[in-house]
Amino acid sequence: MERIPILKMGRVLLVTIQVDMHDRLAMTLQDDLTERIVQDRAHGVLIDISSLEIVDSFMGRMIANIAGMARVLDAETVVVGMRPAVAITLVELGMTLSGVKTALNMDTAMAMLMASFADKEHFNGGSQG
């Protein structure tokens, strides 16, 4: 079966979404990511959508679902590289994606995750998480 690859970098899972994907593939990704967060004990998820030419209500809902699911599993999600035309269109569509963290590029996204990991360690009294 066709699948979107999920890469692991330390405690972070990285997904790069290509130009377009059909709905069933998006659903599979959602399930795969949830499993991998648990399996790999990931604390962060980076979703690179810089190649994605549109985000409609279905894809937006998938992104929000992934972020929500990850949060329940104690992982932080950052969506990276949304194109300006996509952002403009999403607003008009009525999708706010509130509750989903976004970053313009990988470096910023990584820094956001690292900062949240540091906060968590501090909160846990510096124990290994």
């Binding site: 030419e53 549109i54 279905f58 194109r83 996509v86 403009i88 269109t89 569509l93």
Partner: peptide, 9 residues
């Protein structure tokens, strides 16, 4: 982007 998104919906 707008017309493609509308079409997708």
């Amino acid at each position: 982007t707008k017309v493609v998104t509308a079409a997708s919906e």
